[in-house]
Simulated scan of single mutants.
Amino acid sequence: MELRQLRYFVAIADHGSLSRAALMLHIAQPALTQQLRQLEQELGVQLLHRTAQGVLSTDAGKVFYEHAQAILKQVADARSAVAQSAERPSGSVTLGLPQSISGALALPLLKASRAQYPEITLQLTEELTGNLSDQLKSGRVNLAVLFDDGQLSQFATSPLAEEELHFICHADAAQATAAPAEITLEQALQAALILPGLQHGVRPRIESVARTAGLNVGSVIEINSIAILKSALLADMGATILPSAPVLDELRRGALRARRIHSPAISRTVVLCSSRNIPPTNAAAAIGRLVRQVSEQLCAAGLWPGATPL
């Protein structure tokens, strides 16, 4: 198996066509087809379905595509690491951000990266936390912001902030107009809740704190998208337990209301993670330092609501 075969396969899968991939790669289509056939023979599986409209990945092809992408990225990172200067880091760095964090961190990080490291290409990817963890393991992202749930020992970690979770609902909901401005966890759990699935985001933390307090999380509407979850809140379909950052605009204009939770309060530890097995490039190390710096600045300026720097 050769690197060029991996590169060819990824290009074909990305373009959905042998002819378009051949044009992009500047290779004759018969030669490209031959390389693909040799790769499939070596693996002993069919990677692509040929159709009149183009090509589609088989189940085996979808699995191989993820590995091929990760391998090609690690090779590119290795080349970059050899060529980089510690004083002027350059190259490409991919940073994964959870959906509930990107609203607070993404734009400030991009601005700071362009100002301090103009020779680094910072690529941000927004994903569910469970997906980000898998991508960090495989090397598809260099760094990822995750939440410390006690399952991060496989990564090198650096704490960023402790983020408070609030009870958030439609501004006209009964829970929003009730006094006082705080609510107990038991009361919050009695509401019709809209939460991410068990493997993502705040849900494991909520379940853990509730269990420790002798409380149960009842039936919930599970939505693994911040955008759709916000739409459900605005439609007054229920309430949620989230940090304030992803719904800050809606809170400011009065469409949603947030109440602090007590007895007990709920917070989560936000950490920057990198692989223990893949050495960081100078560029990745520089972006890691920048993430910590920007996080601290946002907390100090009150621009990351409910977050305290660690």
Rank of each mutant, 00 (worst) to 15 (best):
L3P: 02
Q5E: 13
R7Y: 09
A11H: 02
A11T: 15
A11L: 05
A11D: 06
L18M: 06
A22G: 04
L23G: 01
M24K: 10
L25Y: 08
L25G: 09
L25R: 00
I27L: 12
A28W: 01
A28N: 07
Q29F: 01
P30G: 15
A31E: 08
L39I: 13
Q41E: 15
E42K: 08
L43F: 09
G44E: 05
G44A: 09
G44N: 03
V45G: 01
V45E: 14
Q46W: 01
L48A: 15
H49G: 00
A52W: 06
G54F: 03
T58K: 11
A60R: 05
K62C: 06
Y65C: 00
I71R: 08
L72K: 07
Q74S: 13
A76G: 13
D77A: 14
A78K: 10
S80G: 11
S80R: 09
V82W: 12
Q84A: 14
S85I: 02
R88F: 07
R88D: 07
S92H: 10
P98C: 06
P98K: 12
P98D: 07
Q99H: 06
Q99T: 05
S102C: 13
A104L: 04
A104Y: 05
L110A: 07
A112M: 07
R114C: 04
R114D: 12
P118S: 07
T121C: 01
Q123L: 14
T125V: 15
L128C: 06
L128T: 08
G130N: 15
G130S: 15
D134I: 02
Q135A: 09
L136Q: 09
S138V: 10
L143K: 12
L143A: 11
A144S: 08
A144T: 04
D149E: 13
G150A: 04
Q154V: 07
A156L: 10
P159H: 11
E162K: 12
E163D: 12
E163L: 15
E164R: 14
A174M: 07
A174D: 14
A174K: 13
Q175N: 00
T177Q: 14
P180V: 02
P180G: 11
I183Y: 02
Q187T: 04
L189W: 11
Q190T: 06
A191W: 09
A192N: 13
I194Q: 01
G201A: 14
I206Y: 09
I206T: 02
R211Q: 14
T212Q: 15
L215H: 00
N216K: 13
N216Q: 15
G218Q: 14
S219M: 11
V220S: 10
A227G: 03
A227Y: 08
I228M: 12
L234E: 15
A235F: 04
A235P: 01
A235M: 13
G238T: 01
A239H: 00
A239F: 05
E250T: 03
E250W: 00
R253T: 02
A255W: 07
A255T: 11
L256K: 01
R257S: 10
R260S: 15
R260D: 13
H262N: 13
I266P: 01
T269F: 01
T269E: 11
T269V: 14
V271W: 00
S275M: 06
N282L: 14
A283G: 11
A285H: 10
A286H: 03
I287G: 03
I287T: 02
I287F: 05
I287D: 03
E296S: 12
C299W: 00
A301P: 05
A301C: 01
A301R: 14
L303I: 06
G306K: 01
T308Y: 05
